[in-house]
Amino acid sequence: MKVIHELCDICGTCVAVCPVDAISVSEFIVEIDNNICTNCLNCLKVCPAKAIEEGE
């Protein structure tokens, strides 16, 4: 999965629904570790800013 940083508000809603702890969030950036990600699409579905898309 890929974060579109231009749209991302760093709210962390994606982290709450990630079943495998693939997403990290700091003050400035949300990052998805595609080595851990299982492509369940939970993050994409709930992102209120529509800032996540498929792909690496």
Partner: peptide, 16 residues
């Protein structure tokens, strides 16, 4: 907060 990861680091299942 909602984006909590600390619980995960402790091995707690926090995903909703």
């Amino acid at each position: 907060g909602t984006e909590s990861r600390v619980g995960r680091w402790a091995g707690i299942k926090t995903a909703v």
